[in-house]
């Protein structure tokens, strides 16, 4: 179905998404932006896994990407709960200003 487009195209696409995620994590001063960057990086990995899995009869890449999605969901739930607690204690959302987790 996708013979017309070379694998390098998809590798570059996921590379762009991954590097954009890293840039977002470094540049933005908000914890939600950091979460967005992490999600983008996980999605870049998923894109590669799913693309190369269509040429694999065992579909190992596809299975791995399903597990990655589950782990991403768990991670976002935990991270947002921690963020909520931090906000209630310190009234900040910038990860730079957070220097201690206790007292």
């Amino acid at each position: 179905m996708m013979e017309a487009i070379s694998p390098t195209y998809f590798v570059f696409l996921s590379l762009f998404i991954f590097c954009a995620g890293i840039a977002i994590i470094i540049i933005k001063r908000s914890a939600i932006f950091v979460l967005i960057g992490i999600e983008l990086m996980l999605n870049a990995a998923n894109l590669n896994l799913v693309y190369f899995s269509q040429y694999d009869p065992g579909m190992n890449g596809l299975m791995t990407s399903v597990f990655v999605v589950v782990l991403a969901a768990a991670e976002v739930a935990i991270a947002l709960a921690i963020l909520l607690n931090i906000f209630k204690h310190y009234k900040i959302t910038d990860p730079d200003e957070l220097t201690s987790l206790k007292n």
């Binding site: 954009a20 890293i22 840039a23 470094i26 540049i27 933005k28 001063r29 908000s30 932006f33 910038d94």
Partner: peptide, 13 residues
């Protein structure tokens, strides 16, 4: 929100 270390973040990525 604000940006920080715009140059180094862009450079690294």
């Amino acid at each position: 929100t604000q940006h920080r270390s715009l140059f180094f973040g862009s450079l690294v990525s």
